[in-house]
Amino acid sequence: MTVTNFEHHAEGRQLDAAISAILSEEIPVGPPASVADNLSPKWAQADVHSGRYHLIPKLNRLAVVAAVIVGLAVSWNLFDQRSNIALADISREFQKAKSIQFRHVMYAHHYDDSEKSSVWRGTSYVDCNFKAPGLSREVTFDEDGVPWQIVTKDKTRGITLELRLATKQAILTENPPPPSPSCGGG
């Protein structure tokens, strides 16, 4: 489609007129008092828990350090007494699990010009759930903790259901696994 220069400017004028129309609208005084009334109990709650918010990360760090020390001590003893233990043994134990859940957090490195420093910030996270044989469900959350994608898979039947919450789309993919070599004509 060809748009002439005149038409292009006319479209621009319509947009500018629409912007002016919105900007010239009279805005009532607000927000209503009910908003502050609804929020004030949350603020009070935040004040009460603020001490705990600072304490929990410290306790978490201490717990991780303690777990690492205990783990090192135990593994040192294990390897010292039973030198025949191997990574394969650990892997075998791990594979016995019927289901596993974990959270995968993605961090982005941000550089702050005003502070001349850089920090790692969590940008999104995925809650992963796997269950034998071949079932999985992954929920992806944005930085505000709002879920925006849910992927459910059944690998044994080759079915994937992908729900995109932001765009309200559901995509079902069927891709059956190839027959096992033992069944083939070979």
Partner: peptide, 10 residues
């Protein structure tokens, strides 16, 4: 007209 334009923009 202004109201209609504003709503169309929204």
């Amino acid at each position: 007209a202004d109201g209609e334009l504003a709503e169309r923009l929204r």
